[in-house]
Every structure is written in C-alpha cells, then in structure tokens.
Amino acid sequence: MVARTEPREPQTAKERDPQVDATRASVKRTFHGETIIDVWNLDFFYGKNQVLQDVSLGIPKDGVTAIMGPSGCGKSTLLRTLNRMYEVVPGAKATGRIVFEGEDLLKTDPVVLRHKIGMVFQRPNPFPKSIFDNVAYGPRIHGLRNRRKLAPIVEDALQRAALWDEVKDRLKDSAFSLSGGQQQRLCIARALAVSPKILLMDEPCSALDPKASDRIEHTARELAEELTVIIVTHNLQQAGRVSDSVAVLLAGGELAEFGPTKSVFEAPEDERVADYLQGRFG
C-alpha cells in the first residue's frame, strides 16, 4: 500500500492551471492497481538545457511500463531520474517530486535507493570479472561475503534471468566469454541479485540481434509478474508486444500521453501521438 502522508497534490494539470487544455489533463489516468512510483512535475536540466518538461505520471505496480518517443525526447533521462543515475553527470539537475515508498526519492539516499530500483543499460556492461563475481557483486556490496550463502542467490538470479542453464558449468569463466545477448542477461541477473522492486531497462535490446532481443523481451515479461519493469524503447513493435502501459514523450521532453498500451496504441488522444505511432516522425 502506498500511504499518502500528506494532502493530495493537484491531481491533474488542469487543476493546477485552468488554462491548460484538455489534452494535457488526460496525462494522469487512474489505474485499477496501485502505483509504485509517482512522478510529480519533473523538470530536468543539463546545464541550461531543459530536457524534461513538467512530467507527471504514476507508474503502476507490477507489469511492464514502456517509455517511448522519438530520439532525443528525454526517455533515457526520465528513466535515469528514477534511480538518480543522472547524478554522475555534472551539471544535471532535476526538480519536482518523485514519490516512492512514501518518500521523495530525489531527496533520499541514492545508495539505498539503487538496491530497490535496479538498472540494465543499453550496451551490456559486465565487469571484467567472472560470471559468478558479476552476479555476486551486488550482494557483496551489502556485506554478504560467504560463498555458501552467495551461491544460492547467484543461482536464483541467473535462473530468473533465463541464463542459468547456459552458464551453470562455467561460473568461473570471464563474463566476456559470453555472447552479447548472454552478457545482457547476465546484467539482468546482476541487477536481480539484490532483489529490487523495480527494474529499469534502458533500450536493453538495441545492441542485440533479433533472437537475443526476443529472449530479453520474454524475460522482461516473466519478471514483470513479480516486480515492476520500466522499459525505454524506440521500437514501437517491441513496446506493443511487451508492455502493459505506455508513456509517450515528445521532442522537448513533454509527456504527451500515458495509459494502457492497448488504448494508447489504438486510440491515442493526442494527435501528435497518433502521428508518432503512424511513424510520421521519430
């Protein structure tokens, strides 16, 4: 349960500013399930450059939420605000509130946050260590050193990432001995090893061939039964296959539409989103 400890913020853009037109008011939709993250009025700047404009949405718990949009619209940036990864870039600034587990995650300890919200990157980035050590890296951060206790965690994570059968006999091998698709699944396992509640995936298939892509999508859907998956993708078909709800960002960092995938794809309310889905731009 997400407990609301303070008075409700203005729910829709329309409530905040009556001048806003009806299209934007549809940005916040209610769901039957609960939301796990609520983003309120997020603005994002790289130096003087504004990359996200007043984004507000509520990510539903469990299931897959896709974030889509043309290149450069800020979808990766949005994803990275959720686990505060943008902080590695100097000059990046986020204002607004992002409520997770009752607290504004923009203000809490990012180190603790990141074990609850994991991330998989665009290009597989395993460490130059063995397969076992890659997956065990997360638990080791938190003090778990005993190999006997680590082994079941590693196996479990690799199973959930659908990689266990392929590597169970060679856990000591270097992570780089795996193919691209396997490395990416290794990165998923690595993220899963600390039992996150949310898994962020930043265009995880863009560096992979279609077959490997397919497996990742399949894995994402399976994982979504136990945790929330938020995936950024520029591939419309992938979004359609994989996600339960979808957010469409447009150039300039504006959230144009957010809702259940089927509704948005079949009957988008915003005309620009309709254009995008037709492939007219982006």
């Binding site: 990141r114 991330m119 980035n125 460490f127 890296y137 951060i141 938190h142 993220a191």
Partner: peptide, 22 residues
C-alpha cells in the same frame, strides 16, 4: 570505461566501493 562505473553505481555501490572493487 565509464560503463563499468555506471554498472556498479546502479547496483547501490558507494563511490569508493566502486573505485576499490572495479
């Protein structure tokens, strides 16, 4: 490579821990 650092930080490592282990 920067990707190693990002991977470690995203798992909840502190900066020094990341430097020390990766």
């Amino acid at each position: 490579p920067r990707s190693f650092r990002e991977g470690a930080l995203a798992l909840g490592a502190t900066r020094w821990y990341m430097i020390r282990t990766v």
